[in-house]
């Protein structure tokens, strides 16, 4: 009993030291937890798979092979940590691809809508602009330009 109390006291003292130096783990976001695990060379997905395997082996060895029921909490933990199956992984890949394509189409739609709603430069609204690089004008072109010019002149006069 005395030894147990002593161990608890040491544990509390150590916890206090760790919290003073580094803060509480429970206050970290999921991203921060992943980042810290990464700094220690631990990949979160591998960690989950590794621990799941340890728990799975334990459940098999101590319960299933003896035809005993796996305790509820262990069963729940196993279910939560179970790595995704090949089908689930494939579905996740498809979902990611669909999201990517969806996002690409949305971007394209937004950009084309923006382009269509942007007013054209003033000079491009006049027919003359279309003939700016044309070297030889046909009779029809000349007639069109002439009529446009007359319109412009008449509006200037009024």
């Amino acid at each position: 009993m005395k030894k147990k109390n002593e161990e608890n006291r040491h544990g509390e003292s150590f916890e206090e030291s760790l919290e003073t130096l580094f803060g509480r783990e429970a206050e970290l976001t999921d991203e921060e937890l992943d980042e810290e695990l990464g700094a220690c060379g631990i990949d979160s997905a591998e960690l989950q798979a590794n621990v799941h395997k340890q728990l799975f082996d334990y459940a098999n060895h101590h319960y299933r092979t003896l035809d005993r029921d796996v305790p509820e909490n262990l069963e729940k933990t196993l279910r939560a940590l179970r790595p995704p199956s090949a089908t689930e992984k494939a579905k996740a890949v498809v979902r990611t691809a669909e999201n990517l394509v969806g996002s690409f189409l949305d971007t394209a739609k937004t950009m084309s809508a923006e382009l269509l709603s942007t007013p054209l430069p003033t000079q491009t609204r006049h027919p003359q602009f279309a003939f700016r690089n044309k070297k030889e004008l046909s009779a029809a072109d000349k007639d069109l330009l002439q009529s446009e010019q007359e319109d412009v002149d008449s509006s200037d006069e009024s």
């Binding site: 760790l18 783990e25 970290l28 937890l33 992943d34 695990l37 989950q48 933990t77 940590l81």
Partner: peptide
């Protein structure tokens, strides 16, 4: 549960 595992492992690392 998955978050609990991460928290425990970070504590063990520290």
């Amino acid at each position: 549960y998955r978050r609990l595992l991460k928290i425990l492992t970070v504590r063990a690392c520290r």
